Computed example of a mutant assay.
Amino acid sequence: MSLRVAVAGASGYAGGELLRLLLNHPEAEIGALTAGTNAGEPLGRLHPHLPELADRLLEPTTADVLGGHDVVFMALPHGSAAQLSRELDDVPLIIDCGADYRLTDEAAWTEFYGSDHAGTWPYGLPELPGQRDVLRQSRRIALPGCFPTVATLALWPAYRAGLLAPAVDIVAFTGASGAGKTLKPHLLASEVMGSATPYGVAGTHRHTPELEQNLSALAGVPVEVSFTPVLAPMTRGILAVCGAQVLNGVTDGDVREVYTKAAASERFVHLLPPGHWPTTAAVTGSNSAHLQAALDIRRQRLIAIGAIDNLTKGTAGNAVQCMNLVHRFNENTGLTTVGVAP
Rank of each mutant, 00 (worst) to 15 (best):
G12K: 05
L19D: 07
R20F: 04
T34R: 04
A39T: 02
L46N: 10
P48K: 06
H49F: 11
E59Y: 02
V65S: 05
L66E: 02
H69I: 12
L76P: 09
A81W: 02
S85Q: 14
E87D: 14
E87Q: 15
L88M: 11
D90Y: 13
P92I: 06
P92M: 09
G98I: 01
D100H: 12
A107D: 14
H117L: 08
W121L: 09
G124D: 03
G124R: 05
S138L: 01
P148T: 08
T149W: 02
T152M: 00
L163G: 00
L164C: 06
A165P: 02
P166N: 09
V168G: 03
V171G: 09
P185E: 11
P185L: 10
T204N: 06
T204H: 11
T204C: 10
L211C: 08
L211S: 09
A217V: 04
L218E: 00
A219L: 08
S226L: 09
R236C: 07
G237M: 08
I238T: 01
Q245C: 03
N248R: 14
R256G: 04
L272Q: 09
W277S: 13
N287Y: 00
R299K: 14
Q300V: 01
R301Y: 03
A304L: 07
L311D: 06
R328K: 15
F329D: 00
A341Y: 10
